[in-house]
């Protein structure tokens, strides 16, 4: 009897630990020479399954940094089933932005925080383009802001058409983003404002699952 209890306990624990894992890998698309910095926050991931059920991760904030390519693979403790749609925020919401000193991926030492103008940088994108008539043709985009009317967080919905078992790839088309930006005129954003909002508005168009 005791053995049976022990065994079922172990089995139960095993089930919990392996119960569903979904892997979402972000695949940035860009010309390798053109990008030197790509860092952005993916938060509040939600999965809508084809059977109508949902998986939601609240108050989760992940910093994806091209310097640490492993950060582009997100593992969720979510059931492995056919997915209809994956949704997430690029950036940090306003409530979290006013919550004082935070840690983990939200630690200000991660270089994604404005000190004199409190708030997170949702997306940092730096590189070179011939279209920029700047020093060494560089562009620097630090896109963020949580105060109205310059709230730069964007919700992204990606319909899933191509799923490999428990893993899904989401393409992030940086090349397309750079095409959309008029680099001749806009090549240096260091503050929340109209220009940051413009770039944020392009974000929903650059994520896809093909």
């Amino acid at each position: 009897m005791k053995k049976m209890v022990c065994l079922s306990c172990i089995l139960f624990l095993l089930c919990i630990s392996t119960y569903g894992q979904m892997q979402i890998s972000f695949k940035p698309i860009f010309n390798k020479d053109s990008i030197s910095v790509l860092k952005f926050y993916v938060s509040n991931v939600q999965i809508l399954y084809r059977d109508g059920t949902k998986f939601k991760e609240n108050n989760s904030f992940r910093l994806l940094d091209i310097e640490y390519i492993e950060s582009f693979l997100i593992i969720l403790n979510a059931p492995s089933k056919a997915i209809e749609k994956i949704s997430f925020d690029v950036g940090i919401d306003s409530t979290t932005s006013v919550s004082g000193a935070l840690d983990g991926d939200l630690d200000p030492i991660k270089g994604m925080y404005w000190a004199w103008h409190s708030g997170y940088i949702n997306l940092k994108l730096e590189g070179k383009s011939k279209a920029c008539s700047t020093i060494s043709n560089e562009f620097h985009f630090h896109v963020g802001g949580y105060r109205s009317p310059f709230y730069a967080l964007r919700r992204i919905d990606v319909p899933i058409v191509n799923q490999m078992g428990s893993s899904v790839a989401i393409q992030m088309n940086i090349a397309l983003l750079l095409d959309k930006i008029n680099l001749k005129q806009i090549n240096n954003i260091m503050l929340p404002g109209k220009e940051a909002m413009q770039i944020a508005d392009y974000l929903p168009q650059i994520f896809s699952n093909k």
């Binding site: 006013v98 200000p108 030492i109 000190a115 409190s118």
Partner: peptide, 23 residues
Amino acid sequence: GVNNLEVQAINPITNPSEMNHGL
């Protein structure tokens, strides 16, 4: 510009005209 007492101190620590120290 600073929205919470806790994050205020990042400014003097990192400002080049103050302590000029990376956090």
